[in-house]
C-alpha cells in the first residue's frame, strides 16, 4: 500500500501559493492511500484548467484530455476497463460550462466514475473570467458590470438527473474532504464531489475565510442522506447574493444524497465485464455474421 507521499510525481506543483487545489490534491492522495489503492487499480482523467495541471503532480497512469471533455474519456475507460477505478478531475468552467452536456448525461447514465469538480467559481487558467458558477453580480474581467446570470447549481442538477451519490466538499477542510473522497470512491456508480476550491488569485469573493464563516457539515446537522427531496431543498440554499452575511448564508458540505442499490450503467453492459483489449488478441470468428448476409 503506497504511502500518501508516494502518490506524487517528481514534478513540482505550479499552482499559485495558497490555491485551493493543494488541499484537494492532498485529500485525494490521502483517500487513495487509506483505501490502499495500488497504482494499477485506478486511473485519473483531467480536463483543462488550473485543476488540470494536477495531471503532472498526481501519480497515476492517467489521461489529460480536452477542456470540458474529461467525462466522455472517463466513461469509455470505465466501460471498457472494469479492473480500474476511474476518477475525473474537472473544473467548473470545464465541467459545468463547456462540458455541461456530458455532465448531465453521465450523471443520468450512472456510469461508474468518481467525479471531482474543482469549483473555484472562476476561470483560473485563462485569467479570471466569470465561470458558470460565479455568483450573480460578481465583477470579473469578462463581466465588468457584474454577472447577470444565475449560477449553475451542480448539486441540484445532479440530483435532478438521478445521481446516486452527491456530495460537496471544501478544500479548506482536508480531513473532511478525504472522507468524502473515500465514500465516493467506494460508491459503485456515478459519484459527484463538488468542491469549493478557493482561487486566491482571481476570486476575491469566495475566499477561504468567506467559506470558513459559512460552511457547516451535513452529517452534524441530522440530514438524512437517503432523502432526495431534502437534499434537493438543501441544494437550493447554496448561492446567495454577494452581500449576505455569514449568519444569512449557511452553506452545507458533506454528503447530500446517496443510494446504494441502483445498478451502474456498467452493470447493464455485458461487454463491460472484461477489459476490451482482450477481444483483440486474435481475429474474431464472424462466420455466423457472414451467413446472415447470405
Amino acid at each position: 500500500m503506497p504511502a500518501v507521499k508516494e502518490y506524487t510525481t517528481t514534478n513540482k506543483p505550479t499552482w499559485c501559493p495558497g490555491c485551493g487545489n493543494f488541499g484537494m490534491w492532498e485529500a485525494l492522495k490521502r483517500a487513495l492511500s487509506e483505501l490502499e489503492m495500488e497504482f494499477a487499480d485506478y486511473s485519473v482523467v483531467w480536463g483543462i484548467g488550473c485543476h488540470g495541471n494536477g495531471a503532472d503532480f498526481l501519480k497515476t497512469q492517467g489521461f489529460h484530455g480536452l477542456h470540458g471533455r474529461a467525462l466522455p474519456v472517463a466513461t469509455a475507460l470505465s466501460l471498457t476497463r472494469p479492473d480500474l477505478k476511474v476518477i475525473v478531475e474537472m473544473g467548473d468552467g470545464d465541467g459545468y460550462g463547456l462540458g455541461m452536456g456530458h455532465f448531465v448525461h453521465t450523471v443520468r447514465r450512472n456510469v461508474d466514475i468518481t467525479c471531482i469538480a474543482h469549483n473555484n467559481q472562476i476561470y483560473g487558467l485563462t485569467t479570471g473570467q466569470a465561470s458558470p458558477t460565479t455568483e450573480h453580480g460578481m465583477r470579473t474581467v469578462s463581466t465588468p458590470s457584474g454577472v447577470l446570470e444565475e449560477p449553475v447549481n451542480p448539486i441540484g442538477l445532479a440530483l435532478a438527473e438521478g445521481a446516486t451519490f452527491v456530495a460537496r466538499g471544501f478544500a479548506g477542510d482536508i480531513p473532511h474532504l478525504t472522507e468524502l473522497y473515500k465514500e465516493a470512491l467506494r460508491h459503485e456508480g456515478f459519484a459527484l464531489v463538488d468542491v469549493f476550491q478557493p482561487c486566491v488569485t482571481w476570486n476575491k469573493l469566495n475566499t477561504f475565510s468567506w467559506f470558513r464563516e459559512r460552511v457547516y457539515k451535513l452529517e452534524e446537522s441530522g440530514h438524512d442522506t437517503t432523502d432526495r427531496t431534502a437534499a434537493f431543498d438543501l441544494s437550493l440554499t447554496t448561492f446567495h447574493d454577494m452581500t449576505c452575511t455569514p449568519e444569512e448564508c449557511r452553506i452545507p458540505i458533506g454528503v447530500f444524497y446517496r443510494e446504494e442499490d441502483t445498478p451502474s450503467y456498467n452493470a447493464g453492459v455485458k461487454a463491460s465485464q472484461t477489459p476490451g483489449w482482450r477481444s483483440a488478441r486474435e481475429p474474431r470468428d464472424i462466420s455466423d455474421l457472414l451467413a446472415s448476409f447470405s
Binding site: S43, V45, F63, G65, L66, R69, P72, V73, A74, T75, A76, L77, L79, T80, R81, L84, G101, H102, H105, V269, K270, A271, S272, T274, P275, G276, W277, S279, A280
Partner: peptide
C-alpha cells in the same frame, strides 16, 4: 462483446473513442 454507445453528441463519441483506446480497447 462490443460496448456500443449512442452518445449525447459527436464530441462525446470521439472523446470516448480516445478513452477506449487509452484503455487498450480497439
Amino acid at each position: 462483446d462490443v460496448v456500443t454507445k449512442h452518445t449525447e453528441d459527436e464530441i462525446a463519441a470521439m472523446n470516448m473513442v480516445c478513452g477506449g483506446a487509452f484503455g487498450g480497447t480497439r
